[in-house]
Structure formats: structure tokens, C-alpha cells
Write a protein that binds this DNA or RNA. Structure first.
Length: 461
RNA sequence: GGCGCAUUCGUCUAGGGGUCCAGGACGCCGCCCUCUCACGGCGGUAACACGGGUUCAAAUCCCGUAUGCGCUACCA
């Protein structure tokens, strides 16, 4: 049974990098019929907040990634918040102490900092100097941290599902802290205890954790616990090829939601950053991604986030949606609620990539800036509209065009451009056979919309 | 500094020794459709970081170099 987890630290909104890690975990779980778990890593008291946890969980839900076990819904291995598991970490640390691989360290941060600097200047690796390992003390009253002693046989090799074999030498590691002097565990410790307790089978996480795996495997070995499979996903970079951050503009999932991106498009785009479909397609739905997602198709090189391609993809999703499905989303995005909205969406949707753009492309309905056009032409149009009424479908528009052709002697661009200008007040927009019926109908149900006849009358001085 | 990971068109990628003078997508350019803007269709532009090996044959395997990134914390 595969069990995977996404383990965010609640220090802000969900980031696109974190979102992709969550997506890969979720896809992997769904593909294998396994369990997807959310675990909140809030051991950093200074940066973690309860509000952030709510935001991150909301962002995950918005993306449509639902979990089987988590801090809000519980599960067989609750609690799923590390701050609520400190007793468990202390318990494991005591066990490790008994086994003689962990010791109390009474060195102060200042002392350690000074030694690190010294080592750096001397060109030595900035590893812990083993002072408290050599002078072992079991004074529980004085403030102390719990430190892990790297054993002589501390070489580690893992078989990463994305990167293949990765090996570290014992010498590349100094003794490291498991429990801070304030009683809270460090990341490398809590992650091992939790992944073991929660029976995680596959640890799929960002590449920044790759070298941490060396420490973690050592802890698994000291506890004689089964070691999970690891898969380290590369980072997402900004256009300048540095790790994506606030400097690059919007980086949180919620910011993209507000900018008018759709959850499905975001899931698709982020999945595409690092994973490729076996048949090479790049527009795919969740079901396809679930059915085809395997780790061996995940690219180990970092990927640059490309807003242009993301926008294009979002457009593909908008174009493929029905006007009825789009209506509530557009409503929410631009706040225009009218009886004619659905028809209007259908007329203009191919010209938008982002939800808020509907406001702009619908302006020809909601506003009218009187253009200056040939008076004789305007009169002909006004006469036709009075005699035949405003066209309500494409055929009626075509019939009107034929009559205007005869009445004015104009054709092609000479006819359509002034007509477009007169009807919409703009020199661009959806095809007239759809725009004019929309205006006709919209003006009947909405007094705020000028009818075709009212428009042409404004053109006549 | 040490250790680790990475390196195919501007970007996302396909590619697992011969089918690759490298395929697809976004972008860009051009053409078509067309009253316009989009949409759509067609075509074009553009890449195996560098240097050594191994091999009859290397984008693909090995070794170096360069560059980028990560870790080297009582951050995660």
C-alpha cells in the first residue's frame, strides 16, 4: 500500500513550488490507489502561524487536491501537526540516548557560531567539534540540546526514484541536533519520526532536501526502522534561473487564483513542469494525469516558470468551457451580473486567457463611445433598423448587410468597418454576426445597454 | 571551501548507442481564414555547455572542466 505525504510548513501562502510537490504526491497516490496525507511541519515556532495553515489548506483545496488524512480531518496516525507531536519526538530521542547514538549538548549558540567561523577561517569543515560527545554528561537540569553522533560507518547510498543512486561519505557530516534546547525537534528529526510513524512508503519532496537525506537515513538506521523510497523533485526557477521567489512577481497559488487562472489549468501547468505525458500532449485533464503519472517520467533538471505558456494554457481551458460553466466564474471575477452575460461569454470567450479579461472584451456591450462616421451611412443604417428591427441572429444580420449593400453601394471592409464602429464604438471585437444580435438582446433585457438603433442614432448629429 | 544535484531550441520538454544534419508545445515571424481583434489551420526561426575518452557508431555510456542550484543552522 503506498502512502505519501505533502508536508508544508505554515509560513505564508502555498507557493507554486510547494504546490507542484503536492500535485506530484497526489498524482502518485491516486495513480497507485494509495493514501495522500497532509502533515503540517510547524516546528519552527518563530515563523509558523495558524492563519497560514488555514491558507495553505485552502489553496490545496482550490487546486482540487483532497487528502485522506490531515490535521483538519484526522486519521489513524493523528495528530498531523508536528507541534502536537513533541512528546513523541522526545520519546524517540530518549530511545536514541539509551542506544548511545545521541548525547546531550550544552554548547551555546554563540559558542558554536564562534567555532564555525574559526573553522571556516582555518579552512576546516565547519563541523561540530564533538566537545560534548567527548565529555559526556547526563545533567538534565542545565539547558541542552540533543545531538546525534554520526557513526564511523556513516556512509549512505540511496536509490532515488528520480535521480538514481546518490552516495554520501560519512566525513561530509558533523554531529547534528535532533532536539533543540527549547524542546522542539529539528526538521531532520521530526520528519523521520513522522514518516516512520505514519508509515510513509514514498517520500516525494523538493530537491533542496536531497542532502538532508543523508542525516535522515542515519536516524532510520539507528532506530532500525524501514527506510522509505525517496524521490527528489527539482526546483522551479524564475526567468533569471534563480529559485522562484517574490522578486519574480506572483508566486503563491492564491495570487494566480486572483489573477484569473483556473485550478485545472494550474494543475496541468505545474504538472507539466518536470513531468511529461507519455504521448507528448501538454493539455490534459486530471484523469489523464492520474492514469499516466509515473516518477520515471519526472525530469531531474530544474524548470523555469513561464507565465506566457501558463496563460496560453489557461486560455485553452477557458475556450473549452461552456458559457454556462464560465458564468459563475466570470461573475465572481468581474462582478457584472446581467441576463445577457452567458450569451456574451459565448461570443467573446475565445479572445480571453484570463478571467478578468472578460471585463475588457465585454466593454463594447456595457459602454458606448460615439464614433464619428459618415452621416449618410449612419442614416441608412438607422433607416434599416427602424424598418426591419434589430437583427436577432446571424441570418438576420446577413440580410441586413445585403440591404445596406444595396442602399449604400458599399461592400466588404468599406461596409463592415463603419458598421462595426457604429454598433460597438470600437474598431475591433467579435464578428458582427454575433455581436449585433447580442447587443439587440442585451438591450432588451438590460436598460443599461444601448440598443443598435440607439447607438446609430447617437452617430447622427 | 567541502559534499551533492543538474546542464537538448529564448522557455517547457521528447529522446535510454545506429531509425536524430534531433521531434512536440509556448513565444516570435510569415501565410491562410476574415469587416477587425481573437480563435483555428499551415509554414518558418531556433538546441544536444565545453574538452577528452569508450565504441564500427554517442544527445544517449565514462572521466574531467565550466556554469547554475542545493546542503554544509538549535530554518524547513
Amino acid at each position: 500500500m503506498t502512502r505519501v505525504r505533502f508536508a508544508p510548513s505554515p509560513t505564508g501562502h502555498l507557493h507554486v513550488g510547494g504546490a507542484r510537490t503536492a500535485i506530484f504526491n497526489w498524482l502518485f497516490a491516486k495513480h497507485s490507489g494509495g493514501t495522500f496525507i497532509i502533515r503540517v511541519e510547524d516546528t519552527d515556532q518563530a515563523r509558523s502561524t495558524a492563519e497560514s495553515e488555514v491558507m495553505v489548506l485552502d489553496d490545496l483545496r482550490w487546486l482540487g487536491l483532497l487528502w485522506d488524512e490531515g490535521p483538519d480531518i484526522g486519521g489513524p496516525h493523528a495528530p498531523y501537526r508536528q507541534s502536537e507531536r513533541v512528546n513523541r519526538y522526545a520519546e524517540v530521542a530518549r530511545e536514541l540516548l539509551t542506544r548511545g547514538v545521541v548525547y546531550r549538548c550544552y554548547c551555546t549558540e554563540e559558542e558554536l557560531e564562534a567555532k564555525r567561523k574559526e573553522a571556516e577561517v582555518a579552512g576546516r569543515p565547519p563541523h561540530y567539534d564533538l566537545k560534548c560527545w567527548i565529555n559526556r554528561r547526563d545533567d538534565d537540569q542545565s539547558p541542552h540540546a540533543m545531538r546525534f553522533h554520526v557513526p564511523d560507518d556513516g556512509d549512505v547510498t540511496i536509490d532515488d526514484l528520480i535521480r538514481g543512486e546518490v552516495t554520501w561519505k560519512r566525513e561530509s557530516l558533523g554531529d547534528f541536533i535532533l532536539i533543540r534546547s527549547d524542546g522542539h525537534p529539528t526538521y531532520n528529526f521530526s520528519v523521520v519520526v513522522d514518516d516512520h510513524d505514519m508509515q510513509i512508503s514514498h517520500v516525494i519532496r523538493a530537491e533542496e532536501h536531497l542532502t538532508n537525506t543523508h542525516r535522515q537515513v542515519l536516524i532510520y538506521r539507528a532506530m532500525e526502522w524501514a527506510i522509505p523510497q525517496f524521490a527528489h523533485v527539482s526546483l522551479i526557477l524564475g526567468q533569471d534561473r534563480t529559485k522562484l521567489s517574490k522578486r519574480h512577481g506572483a508566486t503563491s497559488v492564491s495570487a494566480y487564483a486572483e489573477a484569473g487562472f483556473l485550478p485545472d489549468a494550474m494543475l496541468n501547468y505545474l504538472t507539466m513542469l518536470g513531468w511529461s505525458a507519455p504521448d507528448g500532449r501538454d493539455v490534459f485533464d486530471r484523469q489523464y494525469a492520474i492514469e499516466n503519472f509515473t516518477l520515471d517520467r519526472v525530469n531531474s533538471a530544474p524548470a523555469v516558470f513561464d507565465p506566457q505558456k501558463f496563460e496560453w494554457l489557461n486560455g485553452q481551458y477557458i475556450h473549452a468551457m461552456s458559457a454556462a460553466a464560465l458564468r459563475p466564474l466570470v461573475l465572481q471575477s468581474i462582478g457584472i451580473d446581467t441576463p445577457w452575460l452567458e450569451e456574451a461569454i459565448d461570443v467573446v470567450k475565445t479572445s480571453v486567457h484570463l478571467l478578468p479579461q472578460f471585463r475588457e472584451v465585454l466593454r463594447f456591450v456595457t459602454e458606448y463611445n460615439t464614433p464619428s462616421i459618415d452621416q449618410a451611412f449612419a442614416t441608412s443604417v438607422a433607416d434599416d433598423l427602424r424598418e426591419h428591427g434589430a437583427p436577432h441572429d446571424a441570418d438576420a444580420v446577413k440580410a441586413m448587410n445585403e440591404r445596406l449593400k444595396k442602399a449604400t453601394g458599399l461592400k466588404g471592409k468599406e461596409l463592415f468597418m463603419p458598421l462595426r464602429l457604429a454598433m460597438t464604438g470600437m474598431d475591433h471585437g467579435p464578428e458582427l454576426v454575433r455581436a449585433i444580435p447580442l447587443l439587440a438582446r442585451a438591450s432588451e433585457s438590460d436598460p443599461g445597454v444601448l440598443s443598435p438603433l440607439a447607438r446609430i442614432e447617437q452617430c447622427i448629429r
